[in-house]
Amino acid sequence: MTTPWTPGGDGSDDKRHAPATLRNRDVIAAVLADWLPPSGVVLEVASGSGEHAAHFAAAFPQFDWQPSDPDPAALTSIAAWSGEAGLANVAPPLALDAASPEWPLTRAEAILCINMVHISPWEATLGLFVGAARLLPPGAPLILYGPYVEADGPTAESNLAFDASLRARNPAWGLRDTASVKAAAADAGLAFAERRAMPANNLMLLFRRS
């Protein structure tokens, strides 16, 4: 049995398991099929356990999937899941901190970031946008998935409780409002393109390099 995934968590197993991946990977893949370009390198920022990377690489063999994470335990787990899948289009995971001004690659045709924005300091999101604007060619997508707060609609009680639990764990974490996210993306040179409502009160947000 694999150890449940938590950022910065410990455990003896190389492979970690994030239960939400089994629930959301297929619905995310359905949106990716609409939003990803025809081919190229997809950089996944904050790949976590690595289960998404293995699943999406199998679902989209026309892409070279590049997982990444700043957490050494995550990098070990990503490598274990990718190795078990035996897919030639998954690259070894990169140690990448979204908040860092230096990223260990120089180009990608698309960037995907799942469930990082709310489980990281705001500086990580700002760094994600700056890095995406630096790597992506004009018109290429940055795709975000996760729970958000929207000023023009009510926030689900479950999301409010989740937000409170996140802030209790780390005051720098918490659900971000979409207006702030869009503004920060625009400041970095990324234009908001589309919003998709997802199950369990999540959203997918599409930005494109200006």
Rank of each mutant, 00 (worst) to 15 (best):
A183R: 15
A59C: 08
R195P: 03
A99R: 01
K15I: 04
N24E: 09
T106Y: 00
A132H: 00
P19V: 09
W35G: 02
L205H: 08
N202R: 09
K182P: 00
G40L: 03
R196P: 07
Y148W: 13
R16E: 06
N24A: 09
Q66R: 15
D71T: 08
A110F: 01
R167P: 03
F207Y: 12
D71Y: 04
A168R: 14
S82G: 07
G11D: 08
D97G: 03
V130T: 15
N202A: 11
M198Y: 14
R25N: 10
A99D: 11
L160N: 09
G48N: 12
T2Y: 10
E123Y: 00
A73S: 09
L203Q: 13
E84L: 10
S77E: 09
L43D: 00
T21E: 14
R208P: 00
P70N: 12
S210N: 12
K182V: 13
A57E: 11
F192N: 02
V27G: 03
A30P: 06
G189H: 03
K182R: 15
A85F: 10
A33R: 14
L75P: 08
P101Y: 03
W35N: 03
I143W: 03
T106L: 02
P67G: 05
L175F: 07
E123N: 04
W35A: 07
M116S: 06
L126A: 15
L206T: 05
L206N: 03
A108E: 01
L144M: 15
L94H: 08
P138V: 09
